[in-house]
Design a protein around this nucleic acid. Sequence first.
DNA 1: ACCTGAACACCGTTCAAGT
DNA 2: ACCTGAACACCGTTCAAGT
Lengths: 208, 208
Amino acid sequence: MAAGARRGSPLTPEEIYATALRLVNEGGVEALSMRKLAAALDVNPMSLYHHVESKTALIDQICLTMAERLEIPVMDGAPWQERLRALGHAYRRLATTYPALWSYVHTHPELVAAREGGLWDVFLPILRAAGVPEDELLRTADVLHAFVTGLLINQQNGHIGSDRSPEAMDRMFETAIDLILDGLTARHSPAGRAGGGAADEARPAAPR
Amino acid sequence: MAAGARRGSPLTPEEIYATALRLVNEGGVEALSMRKLAAALDVNPMSLYHHVESKTALIDQICLTMAERLEIPVMDGAPWQERLRALGHAYRRLATTYPALWSYVHTHPELVAAREGGLWDVFLPILRAAGVPEDELLRTADVLHAFVTGLLINQQNGHIGSDRSPEAMDRMFETAIDLILDGLTARHSPAGRAGGGAADEARPAAPR
DNA sequence: ACCTGAACACCGTTCAAGT
DNA sequence: ACCTGAACACCGTTCAAGT
């Protein structure tokens, strides 16, 4: 067992990324070590350094592959309320699919490179449709993105609410979207409240 | 140099916590190691374990001492909008005083113990004054707390906005509070928009 | 009671040596 | 070209031994 101690193939980067992503998803980013990753791949730890520059670069890479998996809904005809809600749900789906790595990305400044690419191309037009003036657009987008990010981080950490059933989480997310829709409407198109429809219909009735 | 290799006193827990907090503030939580901490205290690494159960317990403790330093403003007579804004600013001040540890607390589920104690005693009455019905109170509080948390985490990580000047950060935080105030008003006391005053007066005029 | 050295089981990474 | 063992500088923590 000299050149080919490993079973079969010659260790592709894709294989490394996939296994690393699995380890992180199972045990958090702190559960990923080069030595454990090598063990999971049935390989000498040092072999990894032939395909990956460093542990940091590896984490960067799997953050990127995660970001690419954001499935942005296309709803060209729909009113902005529906589109914003759908975008929020898509974003939430990514976060719950990769809870550990997603939280990690959003709390580590050095990973700005992994900003969700296509997200803003869809997000900004929605805010324009909501009546946000151009000179407030970027700031509003940043704030709303931070709001949703914060909610998702808190939900994943169980830092929130006594009731942590999936239904309660869903309700809380809807409450958050509702608050955002109402805030946007009140600030930027107060006349349109009755006519919009989507926001009011989708808001779950409060049990009384 | 046997019993008293260390200069002077017999190593109090307070001294340990203070130094640990300083190290974390200077280099992030990942820069805190028992060995470095011992070096900073001019002590043998193993001596620490006589005063502290483990590194985890130590971090728990300094999170608690940070949480205790939240200076909650008392503004009993003021309208809820002003009180909410002041509370937001107090919270932000804590976050910016301990950026690394604050982010750490809010992304580590096991530290729920460090939830800001008196915060909720002030927060919930404000939301009641804003007209949030009792059966939505906790959920709304959680959502708003998560919103602000998300904004602060993002601001500290530079994950937000191209302009990172202090003024731009301030503006963004005000935008966030404004959005929250407008959302609350629209949802729970739509008639009171003109009369409230505080929210509208405090909102900075958009440069046109 | 308080401290400490050696030791154990982990890390990430370098580098010279192997095929 | 690709892999690898030994080694280095770090970790947190245990434990028996010191004063």
